[in-house]
Design a protein around this nucleic acid. Structure first.
Lengths: 237, 237
DNA sequence: TTTTTAAGCTTGTATATACAAGTTAGAGTT
DNA sequence: AACTCTAACTTGTATATACAAGCTTAAAAA
């Protein structure tokens, strides 16, 4: 583990944000305060904050401060959009049901991404989750996480129901990239039933490969979306 | 126009990259060279380069230099991925047919995004394009561009067949954000015929709103994808 | 010839400092 | 009570400097 001052501050602030020490809309301590408290120059503090802004954790405002920003622009996160309103900020109810808890198993045959030798030599955590918005099922996700030193992963409870948050806080692994393939398909029988759609209804399918800050560590998802009630919204900048 | 040293360098390098002074894979001059040539500290040069890296124009490598990077990660750009190979880098043939050239017209009724008063008070350029890969039709795109001082837009030829490049070079307008809504749908009769799919085949649909560097200037697209032969690939970091 | 080493390039991290410019709250005025 | 303006905060831009660490190449050693 390389250890740089700016990186340590970054990790600290990030975990504080995720843990709720600083909440959505809060101001972080000022750059001057952070620099004196953590005994580093403001330049170093700014370096840390710039990285965090780039990753979407905060928004910096001149003359104001650094504002905590959790809902937007997190990498690979897709927000569900209603036809007129955005979900999450309003009073929509989002639920996250784990159908199959993290279980250690072998890799499936004909896996959807090509795997490296190291990956193939380990077993893999499989996780199946169902997401709903206002009682409407919108997403079915199959996740595959290689068992590279994830201690007691099957015993962890997902923080905020989020795999990403859990990885950052419990394992200091940051998701840094995402590669995705999207298609419109007709659902198979089981998927149709779980998503509560007719077998003639078109659904959306995505294969994903996530890259992380841990060298050589990737994890994978196969996702099915019901876009009848809610479209998939995404925002890039 | 605010004028900062780092911003001037940024603009200069960007335009040099787009004009081809520095090509894909080239190394930019080193930070020390840039700092002495343009009479600024390396810190200021680094500030400019960091912004450019964030925008995807370059990739910085420690010990190596700043590498020009045009093909990847440009905002809102979706690459088409074959089931095994990526298109564009290999010898796949991509064609871009304009079905309806830029024509000035009124806004359609019930437009898919809510429009501002200023936008509604102008007319709009409509553009309909069909993209194919190896004779397979993969995308149908309807684009709507408000006529905010776009001189002679209907006479322009799209640079590299790209609307984005044309806007940057001919009008100095940079696309800075993209908001998108995606659904899986059954095609209507006309769309099915254009995309060369059966009317029972699921296709992918997206509404898009693009934000630009020009205050208050947005443009819009409605896109239909045939994902039977090629999935939609995207990569984020 | 092959390998090792070192020098000289590159970017990355960090300190110390100064002034510019946006925001806000309170003292003083009207 | 309502207003103005200043003082004190905030982040943004910029300089000058130093050393660390990754990459490349060419000289030196095996």
């Amino acid at each position: 583990m390389e250890s740089f001052k700016y990186r340590e501050l970054q990790q600290l602030l990030k975990s504080q944000i995720i843990k709720g020490v600083f909440k959505e809309g809060d101001l972080l301590p000022s750059e001057n305060e952070l620099s004196s408290v953590h005994d580093m120059t403001r330049t170093t503090v700014r370096h840390a904050l710039q990285k965090m802004e780039k990753e979407g954790y905060i928004i910096k405002k001149k003359g104001k401060g650094s504002i905590v920003n959790l809902k937007k622009k997190r990498l690979g996160l897709l927000s569900f959009k209603g036809f007129s309103e955005v979900i999450g900020s309003s009073d929509e109810q989002v639920s996250n049901e784990i159908l199959v808890g993290p279980v250690l198993q072998n890799w499936p045959n004909d896996f959807f991404y090509e795997l490296g030798e190291e990956e193939l030599s380990t077993d893999v955590y499989y996780l199946c989750r169902l997401r709903s918005v206002n009682e409407h099922v919108v997403m079915l996700e199959h996740t595959y996480i290689p068992n590279f030193g994830l201690e007691d992963f099957e015993k962890r409870v997902l923080i905020n129901g989020s795999l990403f948050s859990t990885m950052v806080i419990d394992y200091q692994i940051e998701v840094t990239s995402m590669d995705q393939e999207v298609r419109a398909i007709k659902p198979d029988k089981i998927t149709a039933k779980l998503l509560n759609v007719d077998k003639t209804d078109p659904i959306l399918h995505a294969y994903r490969k996530y890259g992380t800050s841990k060298e050589g560590f990737f994890f994978y998802s196969s996702l099915f979306f019901n876009t009848k009630d809610y479209a998939i919204g995404s925002y890039f900048q």
